[in-house]
Amino acid sequence: MIKIKNLEASIDDKTILKGIDLEISAGEVHVIMGRNGSGKSTLANVIAGNEAYEVDGGSIAMNNTDITEMSIENRALEGIFLCFQYPVAIPGVGMAYFLRSALNAHRKHQGKDEMDALEFLNNAKAILSELGLDDSFLKRSINDGFSGGEKKKSEILQLLTINPKLAVLDETDSGLDVDALRTVAKGVNKFKNENNSVLIITHYQRLLNYIKPDVVHLMIDGKIVESGDMSLVEKVEKDGYSWLEK
């Protein structure tokens, strides 16, 4: 699905990623854990194409297509979806209009007809119901006045509506109460199947109680230093990260 080779990236002349190698196949769920400042969110943003970051070396390929130099929107259309850690509020742009615009941009890219308003609304309402959100959610402006939990549910609503190939969850679990965490996890589990992939970036085990990862990576100072199974998460919970430092 996605193949990252020796990726180096910086922001404001400060090198953050120092050679990331990561390969995620279709049907897999990978987790990246690491301390604050280790470069986890930078990796998520660089995968999504955030132009605030400079790619200094290496490559990112999506389904064998090199996307390293691809624009943000074209990466999205190729199937990359970033669940934002801090989703921005955009007053004046309605959720329904935004979701339908995004969905139809993808459909156009896939050579499909635009989805009509009625079909879109029926689909969106079904997802909202599963997320425990009221239909009026669609009438609100993007993330404007949303609680922390609503913002993260909004991201999951977008994920399920657009149905991308790779979901990158950048600390989607942060700031959520147990109920909201369960709802978000339920949404992600509904999304994942054998044809798509999920990359979860997190500090904590608690989301992983609901979404079972196939591979766990530990990141320190811009590099993946250890990869393994769920036992790595338990070790981090118990011992922290200092054992990884040489």
């Binding site: 999504a48 943000i72 929107e73 999205a76 921005v88």
Partner: peptide
């Protein structure tokens, strides 16, 4: 960035 990250 947010809008572009959704394919717009």
């Amino acid at each position: 960035f947010y809008l572009r990250a959704r394919g717009i």
